[in-house]
């Protein structure tokens, strides 16, 4: 269970989160939607402690994310960054198996490599890419390697920041199914950020819409179409006119 309690974050004069409050129950898949630049990525980074909120609290299983053993805390998470954030000095398989090659989860290299190749297969990549360097891959392939890295150590809580942006529709479908599978089969808690409404419908148990620094609407994906919320409706149908200004 992840709970945002009235989280505020500004960068200089720019107020990004202005009292975000949201509950993500354990073992469910939450999808956060919202215009670009509204602070969705910032919200995820606040949970991981990569960005410190100005005020408000973030609780993970009732515990404050900032106190306690940070290594143990981070060991429960996997994160796919919006830009992939692959280590370009390491070949693909060492990126994927990063956690398994050092630290508490250290395994023999051959075993780690096998696990990495298996995870690569799950995101639709063949073993050929294992020894390439990230710079040799296309943007969509990099994204999928990032996804494989995020799920490699079977984390309990996984954040996906725009997992299907830059993928072709077929590959996007594969990734949507994979995320769904991770939640239902492994019982993981997932928060996914996406702009792709077909992804929302494929992945989400619950949907939250972030706008102007607050959650404008949240509820089960089934109630999304009949929410009656003008912001959500405009977003779902991609209308240029409505309460959300097109120039931001």
């Amino acid at each position: 269970m992840i709970r945002f309690e009235n989280v505020h974050k500004s960068f200089g004069p720019k107020r990004v989160l202005r009292g975000m409050t949201l509950d993500v129950p354990k073992g469910t898949s939450m999808v956060i939607i919202g215009g670009s630049g509204t602070g969705k990525s910032v919200a995820l980074k606040c949970v991981l402690g990569l960005i410190k909120p100005d005020s408000g609290r973030i609780l993970v299983d009732g515990g404050d994310a900032e106190t306690g053993d940070r290594d143990a805390f981070l060991a429960r998470f996997g994160m796919l960054f919006q830009g992939g954030a692959l280590f370009d000095s390491l070949p693909v398989w060492q990126n994927v198996a990063f956690r398994l090659l050092r630290g508490a989860l250290k395994k023999p290299a051959s075993e780690a490599r096998e696990i990495a190749i298996d995870k690569l297969r799950r995101v639709g990549l063949t073993a050929d890419v294992a020894d390439l360097y990230p710079a040799e891959l296309s943007g969509g392939m990099q994204k999928r390697v990032g996804l494989a890295r995020a799920i490699c150590a079977d984390p309990e809580i996984i954040f996906f920041d725009e997992p299907t942006t830059g993928l072709d529709p077929i590959m996007a479908g594969v990734i949507n199914e994979l995320i769904r599978e991770i939640v239902t089969e492994m019982g993981a808690t997932a928060i996914t950020i996406t702009h792709d409404m077909s992804s929302v419908r494929a992945i989400a148990d619950n949907v939250a819409m972030l706008h102007d620094g607050v959650i404008k609407w949240t509820g089960p994906v089934g109630k999304m179409d009949a929410s009656g919320d003008p912001y959500l409706d405009q977003f779902i149908h991609g209308r240029a006119t409505g309460p959300i200004e097109a120039v931001r």
Binding site: L48, A75, A85, F98, R99, R149
Partner: peptide, 16 residues
């Protein structure tokens, strides 16, 4: 470059 491309953030999330 690692900082700008979030690789340093990624290190943190990988418990490093």
């Amino acid at each position: 470059t690692m900082k700008v491309t979030e690789q340093i953030d990624a290190l943190v999330t990988l418990s490093t």
